[in-house]
Every structure is written in structure tokens, then in C-alpha cells.
């Protein structure tokens, strides 16, 4: 579903990504680990066509994101570190706007309420203006947008950083549900524990290169931490 082929991105003389090859299939949760500046966010931005690749391709459903971004964005959902919404609109209104931006006009008011219920947003909060929301609540609306969009691939950029353990756990549960529905998920994260718990595969990045890929069922928590720290040395 998501595929990076010899993906390179330079900013002036600085090479942020040095030939990345990566595949995320349906039902995969691929966790990108690595220090800040390793190229995780750049990779996600390339799939979203927020930045243009220097060379190589970022493919979504087999289509080059840089060649036909309006088509690839039909399949994508994006949940950044901070899901930013319109503070003067309610959660429901935000959800409706983004769902319709994604091309889904057919939902009823009940459908929208259903999405928010599914992600665990309290009912009274749905009609409140978003400026009163906590970060956890906004991340939930982000997932609801992905649900409404029926996204086949999710790009998550450190979505759980700063969430309390309970909210973080709820978020992981939602990801597992989406995975069960066949979504391909690419998530940049610093959270080794969550990566091991929810991820199916893990890629460790360092200075723009993917230095190791592993399956989560092959390693224990302790092994993962040891391997990660070895690469960071």
C-alpha cells in the first residue's frame, strides 16, 4: 500500500533522506524509530507530497505521490503529533468538514456521531467547540477523520507523544482496530514500548538511512531497546 523506492530528499547540501526503500502492506503497522532528524518526518511528508523528492518515488496504492497527489491523497489519512482543528467549530463540524474534503458526502449526522463514539469521544464533547479539547480528544477526532475517510493508508507522526498512558493506550487500541480492517499504517514514534506492543514491523532510521528492519514478534522489549541503542551510538 505504501512503498518508498530509492527515496532521496536533500535540503541544499543537507541530505535528509539517502535512498530509502520501504514497504507497508495492508494490515501492517510499521513503526519508524530513530532520533530527531533521522528522516522519519521527511518520509511521511514525502508520502503526503508536502515536500518534493529529490529523486526516487513515494508510492501510495502504486501511484507516485509526487506525480498525482490529488489521487494518492484519496487513500491517505494523516495524524500529526498535534491534530490541529478549527477551534471555533465543534468536533462534529470539524469531522464533517474534513470527511467531505476527503470526498465523502454521503454521511448522515448520526454517522458522524457514530464515528466519534467509536473513537471514544464523550458524547457531550462532540458538540462542544474544539478549542476546549485536550490533545487526547483532538487525536481521537483525527482518528475519526481517518475512519470517515475510509483511509487505506495512515501516516502518523508521533501521534502519542505527550499523551497520558491511558489516552496512549486507547489510541493504540484504535490503531489495532484499523489494522484489523486492513489499513496500512506507517507511524513515526519514539515510544519503543508502544512500537513493540502495537506494531507488526519496526524500522530503525539513522541520518536518512534505514539501518535495520525487524518483525515485532521476533524480538522482546529488552532486545528491541538494546538493538535500538546500539544503532544510536
Amino acid at each position: 500500500m505504501l512503498e518508498a523506492i530509492e527515496l532521496k530528499k536533500s535540503y541544499g547540501s543537507h541530505e535528509a533522506l539517502k535512498g530509502l526503500n520501504l514497504r507497508v502492506g495492508a494490515g501492517d503497522i510499521y513503526c519508524l524509530l530513530g532520533a530527531n532528524g533521522a528522516g522519519k518526518t521527511t518520509t511521511i511528508n514525502l508520502f503526503l507530497n508536502f515536500v518534493t523528492p529529490t529523486s526516487g518515488e513515494a508510492r501510495v496504492n502504486g501511484i507516485d505521490a509526487n506525480a498525482d497527489p490529488l489521487q494518492t491523497k484519496r487513500y491517505l489519512a494523516y495524524i500529526p503529533e498535534q491534530v490541529m482543528l478549527y477551534g471555533n467549530l465543534s468536533g462534529l463540524e470539524n469531522l464533517e468538514y474534513f470527511a467531505r474534503l476527503g470526498g465523502h458526502d454521503g454521511y448522515s449526522a448520526d454517522d458522524y456521531r457514530g464515528f466519534l463514539q467509536r473513537v471514544g469521544l464523550q458524547e457531550d464533547a462532540a458538540a462542544r467547540r474544539v478549542k476546549t479539547y485536550s490533545k487526547g480528544m483532538r487525536q481521537k477526532v483525527g482518528v475519526a477523520i481517518a475512519l470517515a475517510k475510509q483511509a487505506r493508508a495512515l501516516l502518523l507522526d508521533e501521534p502519542t507523544s505527550g499523551l497520558d498512558p491511558k489516552a496512549s493506550n486507547e489510541f493504540s487500541e484504535l490503531l489495532l482496530q484499523l489494522k484489523g480492517e486492513g489499513a496500512a499504517i506507517l507511524m513515526a514514534t519514539h515510544d519503543l514500548f508502544r512500537a513493540k506492543e502495537t506494531g507488526t514491523r519496526i524500522g530503525i532510521m539513522r541520518s536518512g538511512r534505514l539501518v535495520q528492519e525487524l518483525s515485532t514478534d521476533e524480538v522482546s522489549h529488552a532486545d528491541l531497546e538494546r538493538i535500538y541503542l546500539e544503532h544510536m551510538r
Binding site: 503526503l48 500529526p80 491534530v83
Partner: peptide
């Protein structure tokens, strides 16, 4: 970024 992640 939220808007432009959509086909707009």
C-alpha cells in the same frame, strides 16, 4: 497540513 492531506 490537515487540509492538504486531503485531495485539495
Amino acid at each position: 497540513a490537515m487540509i492538504l492531506a486531503h485531495p485539495v
